[in-house]
Every structure is written in structure tokens, then in C-alpha cells.
Amino acid sequence: MPDLTYRVVIRACRVLFRLLGLRVEVSGAEHLPVAGPAVVAANHASFADFAVVGLPGVQRGRLVRFMAKESVFRAPVAGPLMRAMGHVPVDRRSGAVAARRARRLLRDGEVVGVYPEATIGHAFHLKERDDLRLGAAHLALASGAPLVPVAHWGLHRVLTVGPRVSLRRGRWVGVAVGEPLHPGPGEDAADLTDRWHAAVTDLLADLLARYPDPPVSPRAAWWWPAVLGGGAPDARHARRLDHEAVQRADGLLHRARRDRRDSGAGTERA
């Protein structure tokens, strides 16, 4: 696998963490198997999630191959790096190709990273169960790999939807890994996703309970969850914002594809 590029990127992320003064704490890394296939499934709150969700893997000598939307792979800088690191592009209209590639990686004993929430949530808390995708559970069931729940919180204060970007130093970022979830007899993807949702809910609750920098005025803090009295959108409002963000992204993708087709047709006519 293309590990050299991946390890260079890891070093670059560590340098960036130091420059930003991020206080990253990882707990439960021992729950990630040191060998064999595993499906890491995490919540999605920042454009840079992969940089912290992959940390438990690094601590265990593993590299996580993330499933990410295909538009990232077309970006001038990120695209070549994503491909060189062996990540998996996902076409939101049809994920069959990505699923087959992820299953091959698992058969080879790799760790595959998946975001059941699919898109960054505007609530900065875990989405409702009905809003989750079942892909991570399907991969675990099809491959026999354990589903490893991972929760993280705090990175959205650095980079997230909005867009919101902050270079303020000293942010705390917590990452927590839960015990692997092994499919039980007769369990389907929905059942396994239910257990993942419950596990990550508990992990997030613990991260928030020990968050060292809670807001003085929660309602004025855009980044603090509404379920804790914060200024972030509540679940209903966040669901609408999430849906609108997906529609905008799909619209841009559709226009880009149409422009490429039109450009190709024009070239042929010339």
C-alpha cells in the first residue's frame, strides 16, 4: 500500500497541530485491533476529521483508508494526496464501486474509515439515528470485521461548515475509541448501526462532560450543542441545513460534470 505519502502527511499534520497549539487527547486507542481488518466509524463535524480520527490507528501502527466523497479526489492538491494514500472515492449517487473497493481492502486486512453521518452535521452533535447511512455496518457484516466506534469533539472550532475557520491557538480536541462491535447472530445492518449510534452517543457525552473550555454564555456559542443549551442549531434546524448543504454540493457537482461534457463535445465538433 502507498504508505510513504501517508506517513509524510501524518508528519505534516503533527506539525500543523503544533503550530495551532492543539491539545489533542486520545482515549481508548487500545480498542482498535493491531492486526486484521476493522471498520472505523466516526461522527462527522469538521473538514479535517480524518486528521484526528486516524490518530488511534497511528498509535496502534495502523493506517486508516477513509471513504470520502469523490469531489475531494478532483481537487488540485488534495486529490493526488488522497489517491496516493489509498483512500476510497465515493460517488453519492451510486456507492457500489466504493463498497467493492472497501471490501477488498478489508479482505487484505486493512482498516477502513467510514462516516455514517455522510455529511458534516450542523448541530455539532451526533445526528439522529434515522439520518444515518448503513454502509459501515454493511461492510462489517460482509467482511466479518469488527465495527469500531470513534467519537471526536472540538475540531469543528478550527474548521467546519459555514465556512468557519479559526487559527486561534490552544483548542482542545478529544478523540475517544469505543469497544469493537461484533455482529451478533441474525443481526442486520440496521441493528448494528443502532448499536454504533448508542456507543458514539455515550462517547460524545463523555467528551463533552470533560471538555475543559465550556462557554461562559452557552447560547452565544455557535459551536456548543443545542442539547446542552448552546447556540448551535437544534436537531430539526440542523437537519434542514444539512440537506441544503448536500443539495448545493450535488448541484455544483452536476454543473461541473455538465461543463466537462459540453467542453468535450465542443472539442469533438472542432
Score class of each variant (00 low, 15 high):
Val52Cys: 05
Met67Thr: 09
Ala220Asn: 02
Asp91Val: 12
Val246Gly: 08
Trp153Ser: 00
Ser166Phe: 07
Arg171Ala: 13
Arg236Thr: 14
Tyr115Asn: 03
Ala209Arg: 15
Ser166Asp: 10
Gly186Val: 04
Leu147His: 06
Ile120Trp: 00
Gly109Gln: 11
Arg164Ala: 09
Ala38Val: 04
Leu16Pro: 06
Leu181Asp: 01
Glu30Met: 02
Phe66Leu: 06
Pro233Arg: 02
Arg210Trp: 02
Glu70His: 14
Leu181Met: 03
Val77Phe: 15
Trp223Asp: 15
Pro218Glu: 05
Leu147Met: 06
Val39Leu: 07
Leu20Cys: 12
Pro163Cys: 04
Asp250Ser: 11
Leu192Thr: 01
Thr193Trp: 10
Arg239Gly: 15
Arg65Cys: 02
Ala123His: 06
Pro116Gly: 10
His197Trp: 13
Asp108Thr: 06
Leu159Pro: 01
Arg260Glu: 15
Lys69Leu: 11
Ala84Gln: 04
Arg18Trp: 15
Val150Lys: 02
Leu134Ile: 07
Gly121Ile: 00
Gln247Ala: 15
Ser27Leu: 12
Ala189Thr: 08
Ala256Lys: 12
Gly184Ile: 09
Arg101Glu: 14
Val177Ile: 10
Asp202His: 09
Gly178Val: 07
Ala137Asp: 06
Ala75Trp: 12
Arg74Val: 12
Ser166Trp: 13
Asp250Val: 07
Val64Asp: 00
Arg239Leu: 14
Met85Trp: 04
Asp242Trp: 02
Arg240Cys: 05
Arg240Ile: 08
Leu228Arg: 05
Ser71Val: 15
Pro212Lys: 08
Leu141Arg: 05
Gln247His: 09
Arg74Tyr: 12
Val111Pro: 01
Met1Gln: 05
Arg92His: 13
